[in-house]
Amino acid sequence: MNTWRKAQELAAQQGIDALLVTPGADLRYLTGYVALPLERLTCLVLPSQGEPTLVVPHLERQAAIASGVDTAIASWQETEDPYELVARLVGDVATVGVDDHMWASRVFALQAAMPTARQVLAGPLVQQLRIRKDDTEIAALRDAGAAIDRVHERVGEWLRPGRTEREVGADIARAIIDEGHETVDFVIVGSGPNGASPHHEVSDRVIETGDPVVVDIGGTMPSGYCSDSTRNYLAGGTAPAAYREAYAVLEAAQRAQLEHARPGVTAESVDAIGRQIIADAGYGELFIHRTGHGIGQETHEEPYIVEGNDLVLEEGMAFSIEPGIYFDGQFGARIEDIVVCTADGLEVLNNTPRGLVAL
């Protein structure tokens, strides 16, 4: 069954008369079309009954056709109002679902073009489909995991004392492409005290001998599926004793989470089991973020592995397990693997060494 047909069925069940989806991961998921996020409107009109239409600017028509979309295509000229075109295609309906990432200007323009239609978020509906990966999607995530593993295996080529984080990050970014990714999504090289900031990225700080370095990297493959993996490196010398002690606790916590996660347990229980180990060792206040996030055509999507999420994990759900411990102003560490729930357990998609890698 076409992915958009599954979304159509859910829309009908939930009383949504039409879904309106603009460029982004949801559009790619439903149609395979990677549309440019232009100021000109591109919008999938997916009625709960009948056939969908992809509305595109006329100058993007050939690109849409070349992408192989299996929907009708309606193009609009520069002097036409695309929102009126969408309204005509939707017709007189009670409820429309708009994608979560639609620009506010477009939401208001569609509201003006369809003043009697109630708008609701379409994201929760589409996420019901995206949260469970099929075999093809899991294979794509497996390829992404292997590609980013190959980059981590090469970090020793670039990471050494005397170089800046920015220089190392630039080399890593080139390798992400060289190892098969279509785009670089992020490169974090957090050396010494910068490792205590989970989303640090890079700076002009010169890496020093004995610095622990957090390297968190990811990209998007030609398939549209993402990679994301964090490993920790020692740039020569000896790591501080306090760091080594905390790192041993972090390894134990992540190992326990990997052993616990599987279909039938809740997302929050995966977080809790590792967080308790870290707290019992005296580092509870230093674990400052959730354990993980789902991954697919976006790096961050459902399910989120966090306290308060009582979602029961199911076969096909893919997510990160990435506990961290952060000493503000000194150093930090995070170990991250992407995993996917199988019929009776867990497949880990990142397989480089999880221990501190001395370079």
Score class of each variant (00 low, 15 high):
D17Y: 09
G218F: 09
T266P: 02
L349W: 04
A112D: 11
I177L: 15
Q276E: 14
A235N: 00
Q49A: 15
V90C: 11
L159E: 04
E39M: 12
W76K: 02
E245H: 13
C43A: 12
R244A: 15
I278G: 04
G68R: 09
A175K: 11
Q276S: 12
E165K: 00
S223W: 04
F108S: 11
R244F: 01
R231D: 00
Q257H: 07
I295K: 02
M1C: 09
P57L: 13
A64L: 08
A267Q: 05
N351H: 14
E182H: 13
L129S: 10
D81K: 10
P23T: 08
V120W: 04
D149T: 10
L85R: 14
N351S: 15
P198F: 13
I172F: 00
P124I: 08
I335F: 05
G264R: 09
Q13A: 14
Y29C: 09
V56T: 09
V306I: 15
R142C: 09
W158I: 09
Q77L: 15
G24D: 02
G236P: 01
G296D: 06
G316Y: 06
R130H: 03
V215I: 14
H58E: 14
R106Q: 11
V306T: 15
E39Y: 10
V187R: 00
R106D: 13
D328L: 12
Q276V: 14
R61G: 05
D81G: 12
R231V: 01
A241K: 14
A94I: 07
L20N: 01
L159N: 06
I188S: 02
A235P: 00
G32T: 08
A248H: 06
R130W: 01
T352W: 03
I277M: 13
T352E: 12
A25R: 12
L36T: 10
G210E: 04
E165L: 00
E137H: 12
L38I: 06
R142Q: 13
V357F: 05
R132K: 14
A146C: 04
G180K: 05
L359G: 03
R275P: 00
A261F: 02
G292D: 07
N351K: 13
E285H: 13
V189K: 01
H300P: 00
A7K: 01
V45H: 01
L286V: 04
R40P: 00
T209H: 07
I131N: 06
A139P: 02
A358L: 09
D134Y: 10
E153A: 15
R262S: 11
Q77E: 14
D171C: 15
M114C: 02
N309F: 11
R40Y: 12
V69C: 07
H300D: 11
E315D: 11
I16N: 05
V168F: 06
R262Y: 03
N351Y: 03
